[in-house]
Design a protein around this nucleic acid. Structure first.
Lengths: 152, 152
DNA sequence: AGTGAATATAAATTCAAA
DNA sequence: TTTGAATTTATATTCACT
């Protein structure tokens, strides 16, 4: 299914350096997603990934830091399938997840409102999100809550 | 001169939507810079411009803030080989590391400025550093930042 | 709607030159 | 070191099919 593949692509490019669509295609094939370069090209367009020139003269695909709109397209599904509840105290937000899902959720949370988030730390079923200040934390909590209840 | 052309490119992509290197080449030619697509490709690599997919199904070149990848291969010691960014809020500092490197970084951080540090907690790619107070955290962040940016 | 095969288009690189 | 012409490589799109 396309949605699963998209999620896989996002975590792939985060963890390994992918320089071309062919590389990405091969990784996906290894993982059981039988797709061609044409589909990878479409996926990249849909996910708004960019091919970034690196210092070493290499290129790598990466997700661009998100506005809220971009975020909802990219990570909404991941979050809504991993997060169970969210609460905050002071400038910290605790995001409770299904067992073992915290790392996956943190990947998404890291890309959300980076202006509000200082850092995240994932355990097994909990992600701690350090926000810049209390109002950032409150806002963050509010938005995540929305995403949880809005499954798609 | 290359520098002038680079500056021109940066202002061009900021002001008009450029979707291909050929478009950019034509604009440059109109403005008196006689260059070919080959040079434009090199310029784009040098300036680290990215071809971003837009909502409407179009593409456009844009400048992107330099990120984690800029730092790779640059560090000399263990910290400089693992830390990518650092930020603080209140008396907490979040040290972002490469995937899987947080534990290694934390070992170093524990021994660094121990007078300011109460404790550290490492996840996979983040270390939370609990500092004695806010000014300690700020100072800690400042020093690590210097360390990171003091590359080569 | 989503996809692959083929193709068209775009972009990166090689090689020679200044 | 910088560049253009030619080339290779990479990527986007078209078209047919599901």
């Amino acid at each position: 299914m396309k949605k699963n593949r998209h999620e896989t692509i996002l975590s792939l490019i985060e963890n390994v350096d992918i320089g071309t669509q062919e590389e990405l295609m091969n990784k996906l094939n290894e993982m059981g997603y039988k797709v061609t370069q044409a589909t990878v090209s479409r996926d990249i367009k849909a996910l708004k990934l960019v091919k970034t020139p690196l210092k070493g003269g290499q290129y790598k695909y990466s997700a661009v830091k998100s506005s809220l709109d971009d975020f909802s397209e990219k990570y909404k599904s991941i979050l809504s399938h991993s997060v169970t509840s969210v609460d905050s105290a002071g400038n910290m937000v605790a995001v409770k997840c299904y067992s073992g899902m915290a790392a996956a959720a943190a990947a998404g949370l890291d890309n959300l409102m980076s202006d509000k988030v200082v850092g995240t730390l994932a355990g097994d079923d909990t992600v701690f999100v350090l926000c810049r200040d209390e109002s950032s934390a409150t806002e963050f909590k509010r938005i995540i809550s929305q995403y949880i209840s809005d499954k798609n």
